[in-house]
Simulated scan of single mutants.
Amino acid sequence: MSRIVFAAAAASLAFAGPALADERQLTRDGVTYNYTIAKQGDARILAGTASLGGRFRLVVKDGWVRGHVGSTPVSFAEPKRTAQVTVASR
Rank of each mutant, 00 (worst) to 15 (best):
R28W: 08
G63W: 10
V87N: 11
L20Q: 10
A21S: 13
V65H: 14
A43P: 00
K39H: 04
V65K: 15
A9Q: 14
V31G: 04
Q84A: 06
T49Y: 02
T82F: 05
T32P: 01
R66D: 08
G41H: 12
S89C: 08
G17V: 08
L58N: 06
A8E: 14
L58H: 07
E23Q: 10
T82G: 03
A83N: 07
V5R: 14
I45P: 00
E23L: 11
F15V: 01
R44C: 02
L13D: 13
G48L: 06
A14Y: 14
S2Y: 01
P18Y: 05
L52S: 08
D62G: 05
V31I: 15
G63I: 03
G30T: 13
I45K: 10
A47K: 15
A43N: 04
G53D: 02
Q84P: 01
F6W: 02
S12K: 15
T49Q: 08
A9C: 09
S12P: 01
L52F: 02
Y33N: 08
V87Y: 14
Q84C: 01
A19Q: 12
T72W: 01
L52C: 00
R44I: 00
G48D: 09
T49R: 09
A47W: 00
R28S: 08
H68G: 02
V31H: 03
D62R: 12
G70S: 11
V60T: 08
V85L: 06
G70E: 12
L52P: 00
L26D: 09
A88L: 13
L26E: 13
R44P: 00
S12E: 15
L20E: 09
R66V: 05
G70N: 12
P79V: 03
G53Q: 04
